[in-house]
Write a protein that binds this DNA or RNA. Structure first.
Length: 576
DNA sequence: AAAAAAC
C-alpha cells in the first residue's frame, strides 16, 4: 500500500509506441561494440537509463502492482518525454494510467564485460530459469513482487553467478543490483532443509556483507521476499541473533547471513560462529567495504570462509581503481561487468550546484528553498552527526513540517523508527549523514540536497543516487562554500558527464594545486584567499569577492594557463 | 583527504 502510494506519486503516462522507438534505438546502439564512442556521446541526453523494479514494495498484494511494475520499467524514457511535453504531474497522488502487463522489452544500458568465458546475458527471467534451473517458487515470488523482466545488471550478473563464477559488478544506483545477486544465491541454496543433499554440508552457506545496518536490513527484506514460502533460515545479523547462534543446533540450521562486517567478526572471535561451509560471499557497496576501515574486517571474514569453493562477488555503483585492484586480487578468475559509464550517475537525476558562500549562509538558503513548493520527501545530507542533529532541530524550529533525522549516533530503535517513517512516507524532510548515502532504496525520494559538500566523488554519486531510482526522475542540489572550492571541479565534472549543466566559471576554476599554493601564501593575492578559510560569519562578502576574483583571474588566464607550470599540478582527483 | 560507520 505504502509502496503503491509512493509509486503513484511519481507516476507517468504510458505510451507503448513511443517506448518501442526507444527500445529499438537502445538495441542498435548497445550491440555495436566498436562504436562505443558514438554511443557515449549519444548518451549525453539520450542514453537509456537502467531500470530497476520496485525493490521495496511491501508485501500487501495489489491488483495494480504488476501493471505498475511494467510501467516502471519504462518510466525512464517516458519521463523524459513527459518532461518535453511539459506536462508534469509532480506532487500529487492522482491516479496513474498503468500500462497493461504485457511482457515488456528490455531496455539496455551500454554493458561491458571483461573476463574469460563470460556467459551470455539472460534477456528474461524465463531464460534464466531454463538455463540454470531456477526453482519455480523463486520465479513465482519474482512475479508476485512485480519483477517481470531483468534489468541490465540482472541479465548480465545473474548468469555469471549461476555459472559459479566470481564477479565484480558495477552498475548505477537504483538499477537492481541486490536482486541480481540474491536470485542466484537463493537458487544455489537448493531446497531448504535438504541436508540429505550430498553437498549441502552443515552450517551457513552464504554471506552478504553491507556497510550499514540499514542496508543490511533492506537486503534482508529483499531476501525474505524471494524466499517467501520456503523455510530457509535467513538471518539479519545483530547482537541478539548472534547470541542465539551460540547454540550449535541453531547455528547449523542457518542458511544465509546478512550482516555488517564488524558484527560478523565479533561473532567469529567469540567462537560462536564458523564459516567453513560458506560457498557464497557477496560484498555489497564493495568500494566502501574495501576501504581501509572495513578492509581488515572483510579480510577476516574472507579468511574464515575456508570451504574449498567459495564464490565471491562484489557489487557497487562506484569502484575506484584502488578498490578494484583489491577486489580483483580477492576474486578468482573474475568477470567484470560494467553497466553504463563507470562512476557516472544516472542522467535522469537533474543535478545542480548552489553557491552559499559560507556555512552560516546555508541555513537561510535551505529555509528559503523549503519555503517554496518542493517535492517531499527530501533527503538532506550533512557532514557529521552533530550537524545533522542541529540542522534537523533548526528546521523544526522554523516550522518545517515532518522533519526527521537519522545518523549512527542514534539508538538502534531510533534508527529503525526513522527508516520506517521514511518508508511510510511520513518524513518530508530527512536530515542524515553518510549512513544513508549508500544503497538505501526509498523509491519516493525525489530530491536530494547536499547541505554539506560530499567528501568524495563516490560519496556524491551514492548520495544523489538515493533519488532517481527505478527509472524515475530525481533532483539533486549541492551547496558549496568557498571552502569547498578545491573539490568543486571534480564534482562539476561528474555533473557534466551525466548530462547536467554546470556554470562556465566553475569549470574554469583554477586547479586545486594552484589554489593550495595561493593558500600557502605563495601568490600575491593570497590575502584574498587565506583569511577566508578561517573566518566564520561576517566575511561572506569578502569570500564572494574571492570566488569572483579567482573566476576573473581564470578567465584572464585563458590560453596562457600553462605558464605557471605549477610544478606537480596534476588534475585534482578526489579519489583516494 | 577525511568523516562516518562498524561493535
Amino acid at each position: 500500500m505504502e509502496a503503491f502510494q509512493l509509486l503513484s506519486r511519481g507516476g507517468v503516462q504510458f505510451d507503448k509506441n513511443r517506448f518501442k522507438q526507444d527500445v529499438q534505438l537502445f538495441d542498435k546502439t548497445s550491440k555495436k561494440g566498436g562504436n562505443s564512442k558514438a554511443l557515449v556521446q549519444n548518451a549525453d541526453g539520450q542514453l537509456p537509463t537502467q531500470l530497476d523494479f520496485f525493490k521495496y514494495a511491501q508485501a500487501g498484494p495489489s491488483k495494480k502492482r504488476k501493471g505498475a511494475e511494467a510501467g516502471l520499467s519504462h518510466a525512464d524514457g517516458l519521463k523524459r518525454r513527459k518532461a518535453e511535453e511539459s506536462e508534469d504531474e509532480e506532487g500529487d497522488d492522482a491516479d496513474v494510467d498503468m500500462p497493461p502487463n504485457s511482457a515488456p522489452p528490455i531496455p539496455r544500458h551500454k554493458v561491458t564485460t571483461k573476463g574469460s568465458n563470460v556467459p551470455p546475458p539472460a534477456d528474461t527471467f524465463e531464460a534464466l530459469k531454463e538455463r540454470y534451473n531456477v526453482p519455480s517458487h523463486l520465479m513465482s515470488n519474482l512475479l508476485q513482487y512485480g519483477y517481470t523482466a531483468p534489468t541490465a545488471i540482472q541479465s548480465y550478473a545473474s548468469p555469471i553467478l549461476l555459472d559459479s563464477r566470481d564477479l565484480a559488478a558495477i552498475s548505477p544506483t537504483g538499477t537492481g543490483k541486490t536482486l541480481s545477486y540474491l536470485l542466484p544465491l537463493m537458487t544455489a541454496l537448493g531446497a531448504p532443509g535438504s541436508s540429505s543433499k550430498i553437498d549441502a554440508g552443515v552450517g551457513v552457506r552464504a554471506i552478504v556483507l553491507a556497510p550499514t545496518r540499514e542496508l543490511a536490513h533492506q537486503i534482508h527484506n529483499e531476501c525474505l521476499k524471494l524466499a517467501q514460502g520456503r523455510k530457509w533460515r535467513i538471518v539479519l545479523f545483530s547482537k541478539a541473533t548472534a547470541a542465539t547462534l551460540a547454540d550449535k543446533a541453531v547455528r547449523d540450521k542457518v542458511d544465509v547471513i546478512i550482516s555488517t562486517p564488524l558484527r560478523l567478526v565479533a561473532s567469529l572471535q567469540s567462537g560462536h560462529l564458523t564459516l567453513d561451509n560458506v560457498r557464497h560471499l557477496v560484498l555489497d557497496e564493495a568500494d566502501r567495504m574495501l576501504d581501509t576501515e572495513f578492509l581488515s574486517q572483510v579480510q577476516e571474514v574472507v579468511a574464515a570462509c575456508t570451504h574449498e569453493h567459495v564464490q565471491k562477488a562484489v557489487f557497487s555503483a562506484t569502484l575506484p581503481a584502488g578498490a578494484e585492484k583489491i577486489a580483483m586480487d580477492m576474486l578468482n578468475d573474475p568477470i567484470r561487468v560494467v553497466v553504463g559509464l563507470k562512476d557516472t550517475p544516472l542522467p535522469l537525476i537533474a543535478q545542480s550546484l548552489t553557491y552559499v558562500a559560507d556555512d552560516p549562509s546555508k541555513l537561510p538558503t535551505l529555509l528559503t528553498y523549503l519555503s517554496q513548493p518542493y517535492n517531499p520527501p527530501v533527503l538532506i545530507f550533512a557532514s557529521s552527526q552533530p550537524r545533522a542533529t542541529s540542522l534537523a532541530e533548526e528546521l523544526v524550529l522554523h516550522a518545517i513540517p515532518n522533519v526527521d533525522c537519522l545518523h549512527a549516533g542514534m539508538t538502534k530503535k531510533e534508527r529503525e523508527d526513522a527508516v520506517s517513517r521514511m518508508r511510510r512516507g511520513e518524513s518530508w524532510v530527512m536530515v542524515s549523514t553518510e549512513v544513508m548515502a549508500r544503497g538505501m532504496d526509498f523509491k519516493g525520494v525525489r530530491e536530494v540536497i547536499n547541505y554539506d559538500f560530499p567528501q568524495s566523488v563516490q560519496s556524491y554519486i551514492h548520495r544523489i543516487g538515493r533519488t532517481g531510482r527505478a527509472g524515475r526522475e530525481g533532483k539533486a542540489i549541492t551547496y558549496f562554500t568557498d571552502e569547498d572550492a578545491p573539490y568543486l571541479k571534480s564534482i562539476a565534472n561528474v555533473l557534466l558527464q551525466s548530462g547536467s549543466q554546470v556554470p562556465e566559471w566553475i569549470l574554469k576554476l583554477p586547479k586545486p594545486s594552484k589554489l593550495k599554493r595561493k593558500q600557502m601564501g605563495k601568490v600575491k593575492r593570497a590575502e584574498a584567499v587565506n583569511p577566508a578559510r578561517r573566518v566564520g560569519r561576517g566575511e561572506a562578502i569578502k569570500k564572494r569577492d574571492m570566488i569572483a576574483g579567482s573566476q576573473r583571474r581564470k578567465e584572464k588566464a585563458g590560453k596562457g594557463e600553462k605558464h605557471n607550470a605549477d610544478a606537480g599540478g596534476e588534475d585534482f582527483d578526489m579519489a583516494p
